[in-house]
Design a protein around this nucleic acid. Sequence first.
RNA 1: CGGGGCGUAGCGCAGCCUGGUAGCGCGACGGUUUUGGGUACCGUAGGUCGUAGGUUCGAAUCCUAUCGCCCCGACCA
Length: 445
Amino acid sequence: MRLSRYFLPVLKENPAEAQIVSHRLMLRAGMIKQSSAGIYSWLPLGYKVLKNIEKIVHEEQVKAGHIPMLMPTLQSADLWRESGRYDDYGQEMLRIKDRHDRDMLYGPTNEELITDIFRSHVNSYKDLPLTLYHIQWKFRDEVRPRFGVMRGREFLMKDGYNFDLTKENALHAYNRHLVTYLRTYERMGLQAIPMRADGGPIGGDYTHEFLVLAETGESEVFYDSEITDLKFGSRDIDFDSVEECQAVLEEFTSRYARTDETHDEAVFNEVPEERRRTARGIEVGQIFYFGTKYSEAMNATVVDNEGNKVPVHMGSHGIGVSRLLGAIIEASHDENGIIWPEGVTPFHCGIVNLKQGDAEADAACDALYKSLTALGLEPLYDDRNERAGGKFATMDLIGLPWRITVGPRGLKNGVVELTSRRTGESEELPPEQAVEKIAQIYASL
RNA sequence: CGGGGCGUAGCGCAGCCUGGUAGCGCGACGGUUUUGGGUACCGUAGGUCGUAGGUUCGAAUCCUAUCGCCCCGACCA
C-alpha cells in the first residue's frame, strides 16, 4: 500500500478523551474513531490488525478440531427466559423491541443460542464430542465504558462451546482450549498467564482467566514468578490425547497465579518470598467448564449407549478479540508509539523514501515494493512528499516492526537501511538482502 | 448508580469570574523555501461558542432545563 493513497488519519496531539496509552495510541495512529461511549468505528489500520488477530484465533481453534460458525447479534428474548437469564442479566443487556413489540436483545453472549442449535440437531452420544465457536460482535451496556476498546460496550469476541457426554470428556475439552489459548496468545506476541478465576454468573468450578501483565490492567494479580518463564513455543500437541493436554494444563496452572477475586493470602505465602509477585493484568480470555447448568435448564440432552436421555456437559471459552488490540499495545509500545509484534502487524514493513521525487530513490522504493509484494509480503510505502522527520514519526507511531529507509546518500553506496522498531537498531544492506531478511523473519513465525 | 469535571475551527486550548466586533497553537489549503528525525516564512479558508428556553438594549459569558463526553468509586465472562 502506498501511504499517499491510503486512509491513515494520524493525530499529532493527544485527544483529550483518552487517558491510557493504548487508547491514545489507537486514536493517534488513526486506528479507531469513537462513535459514542464505548462504541468505535474501526478505521483501516485498526481493522487490519483486528482481522489479523481474528485470523490467528480461527487458525488455532481449527487446529484443535473446533468448528467455526456464526450466530446473530440480535436474539429473541424467549431463549433467555427459558434459561432464566433474561431477568438475571440486568441492565447490562441491551433490550430492544421489534415492530411487532416482541422482546429482542443484542447478545452479550451466546450460551442460549448455541444450546438451542445443539438440541435441535444433536440427539445421540455418537455425535459427541462437539465444539462449536464463532467470532461475533457482542454488546454489553456497561455502566461506565472506558479505556478505549479494552472496555467498550460493543466488542468483538470469540466464544466457543463444547458439548460432551461426560464430565471427563468435557474437562478434556477444557484442557484443549487451554492449550489453544496459550498458542493463540503467543502467536500475537503476548504472554497471557492462566489464572484461577471466579465463576461469576456463568458459574462453574473449573475456570481460568488469561491475564496479560500490564500496569493499566483492571485486575490485581498475584503469582509465582516462575510462571513467567514458561513458554509454550512451537511444540506439537495431539489434541486427541487426554494425557498431553492434561500435562500442559498441569505445567501452566500448577504454580500460584490468581486474580484478586480468588486470591488466598495463606496459600500465596507458601510460595518462596523472592518469587511472590503482585502486579496488574488485563483479562484477554476465560475458559469455563459449567457442567449441565444450561443443558438441564434448556433440555439439551443426548441418548447414551444404554438408551438413557442425559444432559450434556458443557463449557464455554472466550477470547476478547477487540480487547486484544488494546492489550497488545499496552504490553508493546514506547514513547514514540506502538510496536507491533510480527504476528499481528498491519503491514509487514514500512518503506520510507527520504527524498520523494528523486528519480533514483523513487525507483529503488518501487523496486523494493515490488520484490516484497512478490514474496507475499505487504509493505506500507510512505511516498508522501514529506520531510524525513515526519515520515519517521508516522512509522514509529503506527508501529510497523521493520522499516526500510531509502535515500540518495545510501543508494550511492548501493545500500538501504533496515531498522527494527523494537530495538531501534539499524543495519545497512543492499536492497535485495533487506528484502530477503524480512522475508526470513516472517517465514519463521 | 454516587461523586467530580468538560462541551468554543479537524485536534489541543484561551476567553466566561466582571455581558459589548470570537482568539491562539497545531493541522488543512495555496505559494516560496527546505529535505537523513515533526524546517522556516508569506498568504487563504474554516466556528450561529453542544441544544433549547429565559434575563438583558446586547449573551460564548448570567439563570434554568436538557443532551453528550471524560475521570474517580461502586459494578463487571
